[in-house]
C-alpha cells in the first residue's frame, strides 16, 4: 500500500544553524512537491544547514532528487548546505547511479551528520581522554591511536605524523621521568578542532624525580641542547613541532601542555 510522504522540519538540538528534515514514506513525484514547501520553512529562518534524514524513506524518485538539488543550492547560496543521513543501501545505490555522490554527502545516521556539522561549521573541538599505565610498551599504541584520530578528522599525513611524534616524545618522557611504581598512570587529554590540537599530559612523580627533572629542564632551557645530548633532543623536537609547550610541576604531578596548529 502506497505510503504518502510525511516531512517534518525541526531545529537540530545544540546547534546554531542546523535543522533536521525528516522524511517518512515514498518520495515519488507527488511527494516531491511537498519538499519545496518544507524548504520554505528553512529559508524563512536563520538556519541554513539541513540534515535530510532518509531512514524512513521507501522510494526515491528523480523528481524528489531534483527538488533536493534545488533546495541544496538555495542553502548554499545562504552559506549553508544539505546532507543526507540514514539512507538505505538500495536507495543510495540508485542515487549514486544518478551521480548523487558527486553532489551530496552521505552519513550513516543523524548523529554522524551532526558531528560533521559541529566539526566543520561550528568548529567545535572534540575531546579524547586516555588513561594508561606508565609502561613504555603502551606508548606506541597510544601514539598510533592519536595519529589515526587526527587523520580521521581530516588532518594530513605530515601533520598526523608530527602529532604522533609529539605524543610519543611527551609520553616517553613521562614514563622515563615519572614515578616507577606499578600503579603509576599517564593521563592524556587531547582537544582537537579544525585549527589544531592541544594536549595536556599528566603523570605522577616523586619528589626526588621532580627535583632532578626541574634541574634537567632548567639546564635545557638555559642553553641550546646539543644534537648529541639524549635528553635535549626530545624536548627540542616537541618545541619545534608545536606552537606552545610548557611543563607545570606540583608536588607529585607533572603536567605537560602542548599546542600545535594545523599546517595541512
Amino acid at each position: 500500500m502506497k505510503k504518502e510522504i510525511k516531512i517534518t522540519v525541526c531545529d537540530a538540538p545544540e546547534t546554531q544553524n542546523a535543522v533536521i528534515m525528516s522524511f517518512d514514506g515514498e518520495l515519488d513525484t507527488a511527494g516531491a512537491a511537498k519538499i519545496s514547501e518544507s524548504f520554505l520553512q528553512i529559508y524563512n529562518s536563520t538556519r541554513n544547514f539541513c540534515i535530510a534524514d532518509m531512514s524512513s524513506v521507501t522510494l526515491f524518485s528523480s523528481a524528489a532528487m531534483g527538488e533536493l538539488v534545488r533546495g541544496r543550492q538555495n542553502l548554499i547560496d545562504k552559506g549553508g548546505d544539505l546532507v543526507f543521513s540514514g539512507m538505505s543501501l538500495e536507495i543510495r545505490t540508485k542515487l549514486n547511479l544518478m551521480g548523487a555522490s558527486r553532489i551530496f554527502r552521505f552519513y550513516n545516521n543523524i548523529r554522524s551528520a551532526l558531528n560533521a556539522y559541529k566539526w566543520e561549521i561550528e568548529k567545535n573541538p572534540e575531546q579524547v581522554q586516555l588513561s594508561f599505565p606508565s609502561y613504555l610498551e603502551l606508548v606506541p599504541p597510544v601514539r598510533h591511536l592519536i595519529s589515526r584520530i587526527a587523520r580521521h578528522k581530516g588532518y594530513g599525513m605530515r601533520d598526523s605524523f608530527r602529532i604522533e611524534t609529539i605524543v610519543d616524545e611527551v609520553c616517553n618522557n613521562a614514563v622515563e621521568h615519572g614515578r616507577q611504581t606499578s600503579d603509576s598512570v599517564i593521563n592524556l587529554d587531547m582537544k582537537i578542532d579544525p585549527q589544531g590540537v592541544e594536549f595536556n599530559i599528566t603523570n605522577q612523580v616523586d619528589s626526588e624525580q621532580l627535583s632532578t627533572l626541574k634541574t634537567v629542564m632548567k639546564a635545557e632551557s638555559d642553553s641550546k641542547p646539543g644534537v648529541n645530548e639524549k635528553r635535549g633532543r626530545g624536548l627540542a623536537l616537541i618545541k619545534m613541532l608545536s606552537e606552545e609547550f610548557s611543563i607545570d610541576y606540583s608536588e607529585s604531578i607533572t603536567n605537560v601542555h602542548v599546542k600545535k596548529a594545523r599546517r595541512e
Binding site: 605524523f161 616524545e169 626530545g234
Partner: peptide, 12 residues
C-alpha cells in the same frame, strides 16, 4: 615509517 629522538640517538 617512523623514528623518534631515541631512535635518532642510536643512528648517531
Amino acid at each position: 615509517r617512523y623514528v623518534n629522538s631515541t631512535g635518532l640517538g642510536i643512528l648517531l
